[in-house]
């Protein structure tokens, strides 16, 4: 198992490459999703108050 994680001596390059990719894409997904739910909720709220 530890041999696998050693990546043939390239662990210091392989794992950061995958780690940074995962972090950046997850962060982008979370930020985008939050912006969407927030904006859609605000639209729904103001449309409701408009129709009153």
């Amino acid at each position: 198992m530890s041999e696998y994680f050693a990546m043939g001596g390239y662990a210091a390059y392989v794992w950061p490459a995958y780690g940074i990719s995962a972090l950046a894409l997850i962060a982008l997904a979370v930020v985008s999703w939050r912006a969407m739910t927030r904006a859609e909720r605000l639209v729904a709220l103001s449309e409701r108050s408009e129709n009153r």
């Binding site: 997904a29 985008s32 999703w33 912006a35 969407m36 927030r38 904006a39 859609e40 605000l42 639209v43």
Partner: peptide, 9 residues
């Protein structure tokens, strides 16, 4: 997701 956010804003 981003297009939905942009349309809503």
């Amino acid at each position: 997701v981003r297009m939905r956010a942009e349309i809503a804003s």
